[in-house]
């Protein structure tokens, strides 16, 4: 069997394995009832926590924010570079979990052709995050603000690009509304046009990693602010190799951050 046929069969089999679970629909009334109960339970829990915290503070003279589990301060970034809709570029992904204690970078590289990069998406997940700041060091990648706003409203696709970073500028205190936030970046249009104008000769003009990085490479600095007032920053370096494939490399900016 040809490889492609085998892959087709594997995917069919994967999606058609009968699961041991057949979920059952809970009646709407139960769902509504449980939704009504939730606020009451939340308020009751919050009140209980408050009473305990007050008792603790009165009893010991302080509250201890650092008593949170270490992983509650971590955040996870998934970075991927994605090709434009009508080409066959591949998608790159990288996951890096950042916490106060540990370090792990450059995991599972994937590739995407520089000439067909549509956008770089960073997917940010974490607890106790109140906001984040962004900065593109070289001004090559531009923050796609409309997509961010749509994402915050749980709509991932669509929308017109109407707001960009200008080179060297920064955005501060973007609120985090959801448990998972998508940050979209794309190369500046002037640079894409510069390449498109010489499309026929692009192989001659853009031949090395240095050429590709000149047009498309950049480093995004992401600073996350936690509820306790502390900030943690990482650099996400988007670079390209001699074959125009993209890589995302993440590194800690703060001396007191380690990554894993």
């Amino acid at each position: 069997m040809k490889n492609i046929d085998l892959l087709e069969k594997k995917l069919q089999d994967f999606c058609n394995v009968s699961p041991p679970y057949k979920f059952s629909l809970r009646l709407e009334e139960e769902k509504v009832k449980s939704k009504n109960i939730k606020p009451f339970v939340s308020v009751a829990c919050a009140a209980l926590v408050l009473v305990c915290a007050l008792a603790f503070a009165v009893g010991f003279g302080k509250t201890d924010i650092q008593s949170n589990k270490p992983e509650e301060f971590g955040f996870v970034i998934n970075a991927h570079a994605e090709g434009a809709e009508n080409n066959i570029a591949t998608v790159g992904t990288e996951s890096t979990k950042v916490s106060k204690e540990y370090s792990l970078i450059n995991k599972d590289y994937e590739k995407v052709s520089a000439l067909s990069v549509d956008h770089i998406a960073l997917e940010l997940t974490g607890n106790d995050i109140v906001s984040y700041d962004l900065k593109a060091k070289n001004g090559i990648l531009h923050f796609r603000d409309d997509l961010h706003r749509l994402s915050a409203n749980n709509v991932i696709e669509g929308g017109r690009v109407f707001d960009y970073f200008v080179a060297g500028s920064e955005l501060y205190d973007l609120p985090v509304d959801t448990e998972e936030t998508y940050l979209f970046w794309l190369p500046g249009f002037d640079r894409i046009e510069a390449v498109a104008a010489t499309f026929e000769e692009q192989c001659e003009i853009l031949q090395t990693a240095e050429d590709y990085n000149k047009y498309f490479g950049d480093t995004i600095t992401l600073t996350v602010e936690y509820k306790d007032g502390t900030n943690k920053s990482v650099d996400i370096e988007i670079s390209f190799d001699d074959e125009a494939y993209a890589y995302a490399k993440m590194s800690a900016v703060d001396a007191n951050i380690t990554m894993y």
């Binding site: 490889n3 892959l7 995917l11 994605e82 066959i88 591949t90 998608v91 994937e110």
Partner: peptide
């Protein structure tokens, strides 16, 4: 196509 390319690779 993208999804299958990634999986295949």
């Amino acid at each position: 196509h993208n999804a299958k390319s990634i999986i295949k690779r």
